[in-house]
Nucleic acid binder design. Structure first.
Lengths: 354, 354
DNA sequence: ATGAAAGCGCTAACAT
DNA sequence: ATGTTAGCGCTTTCAT
């Protein structure tokens, strides 16, 4: 029975009924006389019949498949989104068509365009600028995006990055930090909002923020960026990183440079990735509830697909939660960031802070 | 143009040719007179025509989609497999239909059965016992599995768990460890092989292995299992964990119990997850090249699909690599595991080792 | 309650 | 090089 799977016609013949009857039976569209029902059950069981979803989809126009386009499955933020989306999809008997665009903008559009044809709807996480999203909507399939769009009335879910930035800054300020740096990731759509939140808070204390940029949202980039901050002219006493991955890399490299953490510098990130907890010092972060973001995105999409779009259309926002761990500690008064008496190989690379 | 996407017939009409011509043009199956080609290009561009992959698949019997069934996308081992598989799939213009079975055996079979109907082939990672794999093969689609099957001649990729276990044990033994414990995960198919490798090595030194079991392959389970080992009657001076997640959890809990790592106990895991490097102490592990496993699995499957199955059919094995970091250190002679003079809250829970 | 027939959008012979 | 035609496996009116 390798080739030529049994079709609806085979079943119809075996049960002595029409194909229409079999179809109705398979879809539970109708009631049957016990005799017919028994023969159908028998024939289907006998032949091991399973209806062909492709043929079905072609007629109904629905595939029970949701396209999920993300930037990098290895980034725990996206991993969680996939996990959440998958769970809800499974509950509703939908399957996930996954596309990992590998952070490549060129590929992205092509991939998403062909994805659109194979699914009932899409959830897409992208670095597309806000104003070049129109084509996505024109694909004719319901879409849920991440982050709020200023120009379009799109269904989307996000978190309050502004608030998240404020929370972290506020936390550090209350710990007595004065020289706060932000190691961001400029290509991200949320970078500016986070900066804004941080600055909002610093302003209240009359402090300013030094902004640096990592080359990618990864631990490796955090490592690379570390020496620039820690051995530069304006060594901070606390660093807020664009995400936990960057923070983790930063911590590792800082220790290798001879710094003692969190004593010499407090570090915090965003995302609350699963393994920040197991780093040392355990990482202070802001939890964006990424798994729930995935769940919510899928719920919204499915609702839209099933015509109950009113329930939670438009933009939904999840609350960020501050998770304080060991990587951020109190900076005592008078304990200037560069005032330690420790010796360090790279001491020569340091100058007085401005 | 929301509903009623343009079909091949619309294009044929607009270009003044037959549908067959359009089809051939779309598939590049044939050459055309410049005039016709121009009109086709024009009409397609004008109407924004994109051929319907469902209809196409129904005839060709191919979907250019590969099903990928894994146990938990959040486990970095699987995340890497997905990454690798996705990359190769993309290169060959295939898409991934992802199924995260959430470690649920019941769901698994149903999910995979329906998955089989929508894809050209499948890559599945499962905890199915070796002898209940027949139904999977009977689904009539090419399958690539992980781990070697003893009973069937299936295409599969794996690593030498036996050797991996041996490597880790050997590493610890050379560091002077004597009381080695294994915190395994009995439900895994590879657990026994790892134990075997470890014992192979221990036997050479005339040492025995204490085996414990974690409830799941997660950090949380590692945390839960820790006190049982460290405060039990046979406190080890080195612990090999089923995977890095368990090891990470174990490390965290051990420190919270008041132990100093790696001084009191060396810890090692398997998988070399990305964040083991950022833990403290950085985790010694065995790298299974999971991303390459994903790539290789996809390559094998695609080869099979394209009729070049000879090239690398059957079982392929990747080499494990020992990655030594800070979590395993030399145990000096006479420095018995329970001989420290440290005080610890739970000291009362300890007895002399047998 | 059941069946006949008309497609869904496309490809694949087989003409021409 | 282009067109005709017969389906792929299924759902869906519309009859009966």
């Amino acid at each position: 029975m390798k080739k030529g799977a049994t079709t609806i016609r085979d079943v119809a013949a075996a049960a002595g009924v029409s194909v229409a009857t079999v179809s109705k039976y398979m879809n539970g569209t109708q009631r049957f006389t016990p005799a017919v029902e028994a023969r159908l059950k028998e024939a289907i069981e006998q032949l091991g019949y399973r209806s062909n979803p492709l043929a079905r989809s072609m007629i109904t126009g629905r595939t029970r498949t949701i396209g999920l386009a993300i930037l990098d499955i290895r980034n725990p933020h996206f991993t969680n989104i996939v996990k959440g989306a998958n769970r809800v999809a499974l509950q509703h008997d939908y399957t996930l068509l996954l596309v990992d665009t590998e952070e490549s903008q060129e590929r992205e559009q092509t991939l998403i365009e062909s994805l659109a044809q194979r699914v009932d709807g899409m959830i897409v996480s992208s670095r597309m600028p806000d104003d070049s999203v129109q084509w996505l909507l024109d694909l004719g399939k319901p879409v849920v995006l991440f982050g709020r769009s200023s120009r379009f009335q799109i269904s989307s879910v996000g978190t309050d990055s502004n608030l998240a930035g404020y929370m972290l800054a506020n936390h550090l300020l209350k710990l007595g930090h004065k020289r706060i740096a932000y190691l961001g990731f400029g290509r991200s759509r949320w970078n500016d909002e986070r900066i804004r939140g941080i600055r909002n808070c610093l302003d209240e204390y009359g402090l300013s923020l030094d902004v640096y940029d990592a080359q990618s949202p990864s631990a490796a980039a955090g490592e690379r960026a570390c020496s620039g901050l820690m051995l530069g002219p304006k060594r901070p006493d606390a660093v807020i990183c664009y995400n936990d991955l960057i923070a983790l890399g930063f911590i590792k490299e800082a220790r290798e440079l001879g710094f003692s953490l969190p004593r010499d510098v407090s570090i915090a990130g965003f995302d609350n990735v699963p393994y920040g907890e197991y780093a040392s010092p355990a990482l202070t972060s802001v939890d964006f509830q990424s798994e729930r973001m995935g769940e919510l995105a899928m719920t919204k999409l499915l609702d839209e697909l099933h015509g109950k779009s009113e329930e939670n259309a438009g933009y939904s926002m999840l609350d960020p939660h501050l998770v304080v761990r060991e990587s951020t500690v109190r900076r005592e008064v008078g304990e200037a960031a560069d005032g330690d008496a420790r010796t360090r190989k790279s001491m020569s690379g340091m100058r007085a802070a401005e």
